[in-house]
């Protein structure tokens, strides 16, 4: 459950950029990583004496700080959002496939940097003793916050102009839309949400390691977004719930069910295979995802733009 709230934050973060702009990004997990490390830099550790040992390259001030978790989350949001804004302003000069590939190189570059910046990130070793603040209530609260931010962005003029540029780039420019600007704003905002997701992950496991923020989580979150339907915010949330339910079910089958004396169990590794099969089925029967671009609506809310 708590894990699911983290995924909701991550996938909603992806949706803000990918869903509205139509540009696939492989690089957003970088901002999750930046968020997790920002949380460590500000809020680690439960045993303050450990920090200078772990991270001798940090500025002395940071080595001696261990602020409460909310400060760490805020730092994660600020640093991830800020770096996403700067990086986005460069990458968003590209469009289409070129932009997608550029985001992938961003992920690879950020991963290599954090892996080798041993003094500041601990390099390949994992950082334990990170304060654990997550529980299902806090997770749900943050997830609702992320959904709310994404919804406000979706309803705002910046979300609307972004979707106009996704549908018809030439025509949107002719209507006075600054495509680069609206894309950069969305990139920054989605990076900010991803950063919070990273801090949540760190504050859930109590351990941070660079390898936790690479291809596995990139593809899992993208799969959730696509299965749910990248065309709507509801799709992002539904995708997380659906794929989490499927993996959880398959995991239980892998452990096995006792029927009398017999133990019925699926072979190990079936979890991944089963997930692949579910994705193929969804793509065949609902190519635009489970939600097919529609939103679940409660009444009819509209914002004045």
């Amino acid at each position: 459950m708590t894990e699911m709230t983290i995924r909701v934050v991550l996938v909603v973060g992806l949706y803000v950029f990918i869903g509205n702009s139509g540009i696939l990004s492989f690089g957003h997990v970088s901002f999750m990583s930046i968020g997790a490390y920002a949380f460590v830099w500000i809020s680690c550790c439960t045993l303050p004496a450990l920090k200078p040992l772990y991270l001798p390259g940090l500025p002395i001030v940071l080595q001696e700080t261990a602020l409460p978790s909310p400060a760490g989350i805020a730092a994660a949001a600020a640093l991830a959002g800020g770096s996403a804004l700067v990086i986005g302003s460069i990458l968003m000069r590209l469009s289409g496939t070129a932009a997608s590939i550029a985001t992938f190189s961003l992920l690879a570059g950020q991963y290599a940097l954090f892996r080798n910046w041993t003094g500041v990130t601990g390099g390949t070793s994992s950082l334990a003793n990170v304060p654990v603040f997550m529980n299902s209530a806090i997770g749900t609260l943050l997830a609702i916050g992320a959904v709310l931010i994404a919804w406000l962005h979706h309803q705002s003029r910046y979300g609307l102009m972004l979707r106009a540029a996704r549908d018809e780039q030439t025509a949107s420019k002719a209507s006075g839309v600054n495509v680069w600007l609206v894309r950069t704003i969305a990139f920054g905002l989605s990076g900010l949400i991803m950063g919070v997701g990273g801090a949540m992950q760190a504050g859930f496991l109590g351990i941070v390691t660079v390898d936790a923020f690479y291809l596995d989580v990139t593809f899992l979150t993208l799969a959730m977004l696509i299965v749910g339907g990248s065309g709507s915010l509801s799709g992002a949330v539904v995708g997380v719930i659906a794929l989490t339910a499927v993996t959880e079910m398959l995991r239980r089958f892998e452990v096995g069910i006792h029927l009398g004396d017999a133990l019925l169990a699926l072979p190990r590794g079936f979890q991944e295979v089963g997930l692949g099969i579910v994705m193929i089925l969804v793509m065949i029967f609902r190519p635009a995802g489970i939600m097919n671009g529609r939103e679940l609506t409660v009444g009819h809310f509209r914002l004045k733009r």
Binding site: R163, A164, D167, E168, A171
Partner: peptide, 8 residues
């Protein structure tokens, strides 16, 4: 070619 924003 009438570039309407088809999803809006």
């Amino acid at each position: 070619g009438r570039h309407v924003f088809s999803s809006l």
